[in-house]
Design a binder for these strands. Structure first.
Lengths: 263, 263
DNA sequence: AATAAAATTCACTAATACGAAACAACTATG
DNA sequence: CATAGTTGTTTCGTATTAGTGAATTTTATT
């Protein structure tokens, strides 16, 4: 696995941020990767002293952000508590879940609702159909926005200069040999998406994974997110995605948009 | 709504914790309750200066724990990212979801998988059946352990002195007029639960809500959590819970325990 | 356009987070 | 069973830095 700098926790030395908090983030980050770790291990990983790491962990523990069994520290469920709360704050979340469920049932594949946050695409809800789980993309997972169908669907709704800004900030990193990595290719793709009304992901994030996505916008043209259906390339043929499946998603998105407008 | 001190974020003045981190927690806590807030509002709420709150928010923002639109600060999806990751670390999570789904489908009600963390019961997974959502208990939500069927199911599996310790630490706060609030009543109830093999919640956490729960233990007697079915009292009759539904959950739990033992 | 309010930046200082080392608790090993 | 070797926890002095309050910039309001 290449390090694309995903868990951005480099300490910044300008005086505009709290260093101690950043150190906590670093500890959390390391703990996330390791699932379970001890004080010494984390001290080595972060470059902090054992005593300091201990203090951080003790504080995080008091806030339920970290658990400790014996000498094994883990991340706690407070993150889920807050995360689920944040997720439930978006309007129409129950409706969104219902629609996803319909989609998952009708297609038998995985249906996802994705939003963007900063420059990333984040999967907020996920329902899997009968065909079972073809994972990648668990809830909460953050993707580079140009790697995913949902991401491209959202980008296509954004003004060109905003897309440009995202490119300038985050670049166009590759995930597979199919990933779009040049500006011109991306803008061409977004034009196509805009014309079609849906975006397709042809193994651009994971080899063997296909997906279609349709953007969701409210009456004020705000991008709320995107619905997507994803599955293994051997089950989901390209023509299916372009026809039946994109139609299904469109129908769901339209119904959702209508319902949201009346509330 | 009474303040039971749920979001425990009182600053402790012993030198064993990081004060600046605790202040961040306080800000996060306030932000969670308000959904959206500005610097001044948070400064007033926490008693910190505007400048300081700003610095905290800037740092949290850099870590994707907070988002800012215009002058509106909100909690970010990083919490969901980490939370979902923590949740997925528990063994057999896919199996658990499958079983919940079966249960939700068979009963038409809401099926939940709950674990304990520290003295609380936390809903980790949740599947809703056709009868629709009778909410309370979204994913990640933390309950006082004696308020819920799942909590009582887990307590019944714990050694008496550990239960005692929890009571001593957290007390037996009331949520409704049915909540068990005395030690003797609780221990009696746990005896009953142990004999029956399931726990019932008769409007002990929310008026009009009934639930049954069965504990899940592994081959080493470790308590992994509990499965529960919950729904409105008018749909779920007491006899149903004691008979058909508790049997259904038992079957699922047994299958799950078996599967977990072989891995 | 003018005024008000809120967010951000700045400089200074008191608070405190950090590191190093001592101490305690637990593991492994002979 | 004793001893050496880890690992976690606590203590303490000090350098760092987090916080305050005011100045400055930005955004909203009249």
């Amino acid at each position: 696995m290449e390090n694309t700098g995903d868990n951005g926790c480099e300490a910044s030395d300008d005086g505009r941020t709290l260093k101690s908090l950043e150190r906590s983030f670093a500890i959390i980050s390391e703990l996330k990767e390791r699932e379970v770790a001890g004080v010494t291990e984390l001290a080595n990983a972060t470059g902090l002293s054992k005593g300091s790491v201990h203090k951080h962990l003790a504080t995080l523990r008091a806030g339920d952000f970290v658990t400790k069994d014996d000498r094994a520290y883990r991340l706690g469920l407070r993150f889920l508590d807050i995360g689920a709360d944040v997720r439930n704050q978006i309007e129409g979340n129950t409706l969104i879940q219902e629609k996803l469920r319909e989609l998952a049932e009708e297609t038998g594949e995985t249906a996802q609702f994705t939003v963007r946050e900063h420059g990333r695409a984040v999967v907020l809800y996920r329902e899997t159909g009968m065909q079972g789980v073809f994972s990648k993309g668990r809830v909460g997972k953050r993707f580079h926005i140009h790697h995913t169908a949902a991401g491209k669907a959202m980008l296509a709704q954004m003004p060109r200069e905003e897309v440009q800004r995202l490119i300038d900030t985050y670049g166009l990193t590759a995930a597979t040999e199919n990933t779009i990595t040049t500006e011109t290719a991306l803008f061409d793709e977004l034009d196509k998406v805009r014309k079609q009304g849906f975006a397709i992901n042809e193994s651009e994030s994971t080899r063997g994974l296909r997906a279609v996505a349709v953007p969701i916008v409210d009456s004020d043209e705000n991008i709320l997110g995107a619905f997507a259906i994803a599955g293994p390339a051997h089950r989901l043929k390209h023509e299916q995605l372009e026809n039946e499946i994109s139609d299904l998603i469109h129908r769901s998105v339209n119904e959702l948009e209508l319902n949201l407008a009346h509330s």
